[in-house]
Structures are given as C-alpha cells and as structure tokens.
Amino acid sequence: MENQQNLIEQFISAAERAAATVERVHNSPAALSQAISKITAGEKTVLLAEPDYLPDELFRSLRELPGIITHPTEEQMATTKIGITDAFAGVAGTGSICVALSRNLGGSISLYTREHVAVLSAQSIVSRPRDIFTMQAKGGNHQDFVFITGPSATADMGPLVRGVHGPGKLHIILLEETDV
C-alpha cells in the first residue's frame, strides 16, 4: 500500500514534468461526475469514449452531463474541443498513461480533440513501461494501446511548441480510494 502511494506521488510529479495536469479525485461516480462537469461547463459538445477498463457505473452519470456525446460522427470527432477517455494504466517513472485503441474510440478521441481528459485509477499505476508488457504477457493479452506522456509537442519549428496534431492539453483525473 505504501509502495503504491510512492508510485502515485512519483507518477504525479513525472506527469507534471511532461506538462500534463493531474487532479486527484475520490474514486466515486459522484466525485468523478463533479470533476468532469467543471471541465465541460460551457462546452456545447464534449466527446466521451466508453471505458475500456474502468467500471461502467463510474461513467454512467457522465453520460447524463450536458453536451456529452458518446458515439460521435467523424465530423464531431474532428472538430470537438474536449474529449474524455479512460486509461488502463499509468506509469510512475515516466508520467505516462496507457490508453487502449479499441472500438470504444478512446484512441481516436484522445487524438483528434484539442484537450484530452483522461480518467485513471490510482490502483493501476505501475513503476515502469516494462511492467505493462509483463502484465500483458502474463494475461496473454496484446491489446493495441498508446503510452501518452504529456500533450503532443514538437521542436521541429525551432522552440518547443505544445499542441501539434494531437491535443495541446492533457488533464489526468486520478481516482483514489482515500478521500483527497
């Protein structure tokens, strides 16, 4: 438990170093819904990918929020500003989140939008990238996924610029069991 707490602290600082923002939220549908509604306030449409990993009851109330679209058209996918997905793991050493590429569209919504909000359970944070592969190998699972480490960025035009083809902002909602 204490070890997991260390990983969480390490994850937060690494993610912030990679220019992501991290918000610690109690692991409950109500707390999550409240956190998300703050983010989506004033937005006409917000894309929500069906969760690949997190329990459905967590996301149920999110679907009721104003402006939420769960099955976007291509047009909506290519033009909506904010997209919400879950992440099936976090990596403490690198501050990365792992988002699945599946028919739930998390892999696409986390790409086309300008701001990506990712919901991550603190329990699923591991130490290093290799742990994800070890876990998957044990489970005989080779899910397509992407390690996302901060917003998309480039230094090709000279100075560092955030926000290229992928989102320019990455906000991670970290669900924790303890009241934070």
């Binding site: 990679a18 590429l101 028919r103 990238p129 397509d144």
Partner: peptide
C-alpha cells in the same frame, strides 16, 4: 533525453477500430 516521448504507439495492425470517412 525524455523518459518517453509524447506518444509511444503499440499496435498490431490492421487496427480493430471502426473505419472512418471524414
């Protein structure tokens, strides 16, 4: 010199994504 770059894609294509037409 980054721990990881922004995106590290791990894929077994063809992807199991619905086809898109924009």
């Amino acid at each position: 010199g980054q721990p990881l770059t922004s995106y590290t894609n791990i894929i077994d294509p063809p992807l199991d994504l619905p086809p898109f037409s924009f």
